[in-house]
Amino acid sequence: MARIILLQFAAAFLVALVASLVSGLSAGISALLGGLCCAIPNAFFALRLLSSTRKPGGSPMNFFIGEFIKIAMNIALFGAVIMFYPDLNWLAFIAAFIVVLKSYLILLFRQ
Rank of each mutant, 00 (worst) to 15 (best):
A2Q: 13
A2F: 07
R3D: 15
I4H: 12
I4A: 13
I5C: 00
L6K: 13
Q8E: 15
Q8R: 14
Q8W: 09
A11P: 01
A12R: 10
F13Q: 10
F13I: 14
A16M: 03
L17R: 09
L17T: 12
V18H: 09
A19F: 08
A19H: 06
A19Y: 04
A19S: 10
S20D: 14
S20V: 14
L21K: 09
V22D: 12
V22E: 15
V22K: 14
G24N: 00
G24P: 04
S26W: 02
A27D: 02
S30E: 04
S30F: 02
A31W: 03
A31N: 01
L32P: 03
L33D: 07
G34V: 01
G34R: 06
L36F: 04
C37K: 03
C37T: 14
C37E: 08
A39G: 08
A39H: 11
A39E: 08
I40L: 11
P41N: 10
N42Q: 11
N42P: 05
N42D: 13
F44S: 06
F45H: 04
F45Q: 03
L47I: 06
L47C: 05
R48H: 14
L50V: 10
S52P: 00
T53G: 00
K55L: 12
G57T: 15
G57P: 00
G58D: 14
G58L: 13
G58H: 15
S59I: 07
P60N: 10
M61Y: 10
F63E: 07
F63Y: 10
F64R: 02
F64V: 02
I65T: 05
E67N: 02
E67T: 05
I69M: 11
I69P: 03
I71V: 13
I71C: 01
A72I: 07
I75C: 06
I75L: 13
A76T: 09
L77F: 05
L77Q: 04
F78H: 04
F78M: 05
G79S: 12
A80I: 00
V81R: 01
M83V: 08
M83R: 14
F84S: 06
Y85K: 06
Y85E: 05
P86C: 07
P86G: 06
P86D: 09
P86H: 05
D87L: 14
D87W: 12
D87A: 15
N89G: 03
W90M: 11
L91G: 14
L91H: 06
I94Q: 07
I94E: 07
A95D: 03
A95V: 10
A95N: 05
A95S: 10
F97E: 02
I98Y: 05
V100G: 03
L101T: 06
L101S: 07
K102V: 11
S103H: 03
I106R: 09
L108D: 13
R110E: 15
R110N: 15
Q111L: 12
Q111N: 15
